[in-house]
Design a protein around this nucleic acid. Structure first.
Length: 455
RNA sequence: GAGGGCGUAGCUCAGUAGGUUAGAGCGACAGUUUGUGGCACUGUAGGUCGUGGGUUCGAGACCCAUCGUUCUCCCCA
């Protein structure tokens, strides 16, 4: 038997970690519900067909596929061999694999909406908090199993949904006391730029190049544009586009001049303006930054797009989202527009941990440890402990009669703040001794008083 | 998919140009102390040096392979 180990990129979570994670989940869930979203859960695995082709070429490679059962069936040998040959060539074959672990929560949600669109009440607002899996190579802030918390609205084109979702971001991060910047852009603006610079079909090349600006710098971006056959005049437009700075309003004004009367650009700015303006009136706009370099990878976005970055932290984005016009048409149900956001819990955890932002209260557990001083004493003490538990005070009893030393140390290790001693004397007098470990303060009270003692 | 770093006790690590029986701190356990912890002292247990091969009289150290882990790029939460 070799040493037990964990699959790459997965983790166990100890008590303290789980409690801190719960704190994040509860905070986000609370905000989702406050804004009228209702929970949904979908299976860990989906049909491979549901997921393939939705995340781009790179994304497809990162989907965890599940090997079919019954591959050893001799009667299907020929079919399986044929399928295996395909798989080796990088294609999928349903005779080898037809299920996969979910890669995100948005596509399973779209699948759910497509399957149930007749029964749903629109606008349909759901939130979902579940793990997703990616066969990525793990590194800082990147895991193979991680949680996402998504909120989406489908069946409404109103920009009020965007306003609501951005308010959720602002509220949730405020509650977590994590300073963030929410970048916001519009795919229509990028589309407009592409049209001004040589055509719609260059949108993908253009966004990929633009997205790299803060990593590789303008010179390299220019080089990349050159390689993709953008003319010098077009490159100059892109340069002017990327050099736009100032307040949100100033940026939009500058952009309006640059894109002229391009229809998509105008529409994109109008939407951006609408949302930002809403925030100015609610006083929540301080975290929102118009950023025309924001592109986002997932190619199903069509309107406003968002990305959240923790301020002063070495961490990629901790959340993202945007509007998609027609996601469910991938599953045969057209004309259901939607918009959604996602929180990356594991990265939020890492940032909160790094910045020491978890409240001390999240780690509290047992309040009182009852010492075990022998069979008869323990029995009396157990009854007293039951009454405290009825009062919702978390208690436990040391399971065996051990030396004081050992029982004290147990309480200390576990961070239990109080101990109660019920020994022979206490049983005879119907009293017990309460000791607060941090102060060493000791109090003797009757059994009747114990129930109402303020620990 | 490409490229670096690191794998020595339960944990954190040391181990000098290859040289006897591989060390420390913390932790665990026992005792000093059988109803009052944290401190201190004493002692005990715990290691196929990730794995496999090679070089050498001799390998924890050097070489090759492999596995694991971590980080960067790509991409993303």
């Amino acid at each position: 038997m070799s040493k037990p180990s964990l699959p790459q990129g997965t983790r166990d979570f100890n008590a303290a970690t789980v409690q801190k994670r719960q704190y994040i989940f509860q905070t986000i869930r609370g905000v989702f519900e406050l804004y009228g979203f209702q929970p949904l859960e979908t299976p860990a695995m989906e049909n491979l067909e549901t997921l393939m082709g939705k995340y781009g070429e790179e994304g497809d490679k990162l989907i965890f596929k599940i090997l079919n059962n019954g591959l050893d069936n001799p009667q299907k040998r020929a079919q399986i061999d044929e399928g295996f040959a395909k798989v080796v060539e990088g294609k999928n074959s349903s005779s080898i694999t037809e299920r996969a672990l979910r890669y995100d929560l948005t596509i399973p949600f779209a699948r759910y909406v497509a399957m149930n669109h007749g029964q749903l009440t629109y606008p349909f607002k759901r939130y979902q908090i579940q793990p997703v899996w990616r066969a990525d190579r793990p590194q800082k802030g990147r895991y193979r199993e991680f949680y996402q918390c998504d909120a989406d609205v489908v069946g409404s084109e109103s920009l009020l949904n965007e306003v609501d979702l951005l308010a959720i971001y602002v509220t949730a991060f405020k509650k977590l006391q994590l300073p963030v910047e929410i970048k916001i852009n519009n795919r229509k603006i990028l589309l407009g730029l592409a049209q001004v610079c040589g055509g719609e079909e260059k949108l993908i090349d253009l966004t990929i190049a633009i997205d790299k600006l803060d990593k590789i710098g303008w010179e390299k971006v220019k080089e990349e544009l050159n390689n993709k056959d953008f003319s010098l005049a077009q490159q100059e437009v892109v340069e002017r586009y990327l050099n736009i700075t100032g307040t949100n309003t100033e940026k939009i004004n500058a952009l309006a001049i640059l894109l002229g009367d391009n229809e998509n650009g105008r529409k994109g700015m109008e939407e951006l303006n609408y949302v930002l303006d809403y925030y100015v009136s609610t006083g929540m706009h301080e975290n929102l930054v118009a950023d025309f370099t924001l592109a986002r990878g997932l190619n199903y976005y069509t309107g406003l797009i968002f990305e959240v970055k923790a301020l002063d932290a070495q961490m990629g984005s901790i959340g993202g989202g945007g509007r998609y016009n027609d996601l469910t048409s991938l599953f045969g149900v057209p004309n259901i527009p939607g918009v959604g956001i996602s929180f990356g819990v594991d990265r939020i955890y890492d940032v909160l941990e790094e910045k020491n932002l978890f409240p001390a209260s999240v780690e509290q557990s047992t309040q009182v440890l009852f010492f075990n001083l022998g069979e008869a004493e323990a029995k009396v003490a157990y009854a007293q402990m039951g009454m405290l538990r009825d009062k919702k005070i978390a208690c436990e009893m040391y399971p065996e009669k051990s030396k004081f030393d050992k029982q004290f140390k147990y309480a200390e290790k576990k961070g239990i703040p109080n101990i109660v001693i019920i020994g022979t004397d206490e049983v005879a007098n119907k009293k017990c001794t309460i000791k607060h470990l941090a102060t060493g303060k000791q109090t003797t009270v009757s059994f009747d008083e114990l129930v109402n003692f303020q620990f």
